[in-house]
Nucleic acid binder design. Structure first.
Lengths: 214, 214
DNA sequence: ACCTGAACACCGTTCAAGT
DNA sequence: ACCTGAACACCGTTCAAGT
């Protein structure tokens, strides 16, 4: 948040106290947005904050731990965003499923760097992080409940196993998100809106397929 | 292929000729399998082959170019594997679609490091590589044709836009593959077979949903 | 044409020493 | 308790010089 954007040496501030831990997370996130998560360096973050290269290691055992902290923050924001999206949907059944998917995909598109970090298994320790594990579990539980509800309302085919549908739904969402992030989406469309439309189209298609046969 | 597995200094072989370029690709791939693609270092590859740290740069302008070459090889193998899988399927229609999906998912599971490299957008230059672009296009074209054929045979609902179905199919497959690679699959199952079954279940579910209503 | 040797500017991480 | 300074073993990359 409080990054000096000016010249090179940001003048040794009274960072000797202050919350260096949080400042490092903020700086790392900012760097990830600028140059991609894989190019974030601990030293550069330290430099930006005017502390020595060794300072970060009083707060994080290693680079992965710092990146994991960044991922935890991003993950929390994602979860909150999706929860907000469902809460804002007043209609029931499929509409709530739709809201979840839309919220998820829109967030990914709005914050690509954040999503890349949460899903960067090679940069973070997702299994070790209770926050990340809990966040994922909570999201999965939200989808599961919404799916069950939609099934019992007759909005969604109920002749199919809920857990398997859940897997497919997650795979579709995650797949669409990653295709966008990894540049696998048709590029003959220049505009951001076009990509959004493609993602939406994918989402619409799954949900259409889930409708009970007429 | 021809890596000396023994002690540290692999004795300066007559690599002064020989195919250093290909040897580097092989070495990088081997390292990627051992420690993950993101931990492959050009210097270590050079060391393994008994050449100087500068030698690789006569064959590749930079690290990304080397990794891209590795990805090209992996991508070719993936494409061939999938093509084989379809060719081996004697039945028509959905069965061919099934074969594609199965071939894809099985390959990913059998060669996780390879898949990680082909899809490691932060390590390679996928857009610059004609080989990778062509491979992806060919695979996409294969799925498209198979899908169209299945639709016209009445195996797959034909009331839905082919291109959108194609997107969903790709997203599901890519999503399932990445979930496995990124460790998002339920871990209460220890065995590899269990993960394979989960992936298969996801694939079966999409294809089931694509069947025309009875 | 292909490779070496030495160098440069970076990294992550450790550790004694400072406040 | 928190940070610095200096050091270590690594990187990717360049470039003159060697064969």
């Amino acid at each position: 948040m409080v990054l000096s954007r000016s010249g090179s040496p940001p003048a040794p501030q009274p960072y000797h106290h202050g919350n260096l831990r949080q400042a490092l997370v903020d700086a790392a996130l900012a760097l990830a947005q600028q140059k991609g998560p894989e190019r974030v360096s601990v030293r550069e973050a330290a430099r930006l904050l005017g502390v020595s290269p060794a300072a970060p290691f009083r707060h994080f055992p290693n680079r992965r731990a710092l990146m994991t902290a960044v991922a935890e923050e991003a993950g929390t924001r994602l979860r909150i965003e999706v929860q907000k999206a469902v809460a804002a949907e007043r209609r029931d059944g499929v509409y709530r499923l739709h809201a979840i998917g839309r919220g998820y995909l829109q967030w990914v598109q709005a914050h690509p760097a954040h999503f890349r970090i949460v899903s960067a298994r090679d940069q973070i320790d997702a299994e070790q992080s209770v926050s990340l594990q809990a966040g994922t579990a909570e999201l999965q539980q939200l989808i599961r409940q919404t799916l069950q509800q939609a099934q019992s309302r007759g909005d969604i085919r109920s002749d199919l196993d809920t857990e398997r549908l859940l897997l497919l739904l997650r795979a579709s969402l995650y797949g669409l998100a990653r295709m966008q992030i990894d540049g696998h989406l048709p590029q003959w469309q220049f505009r951001e809106e076009a990509e959004a439309a493609t993602l939406q189209g994918g989402l619409d298609m799954v949900l259409k397929l889930l409708k009970p046969p007429a």
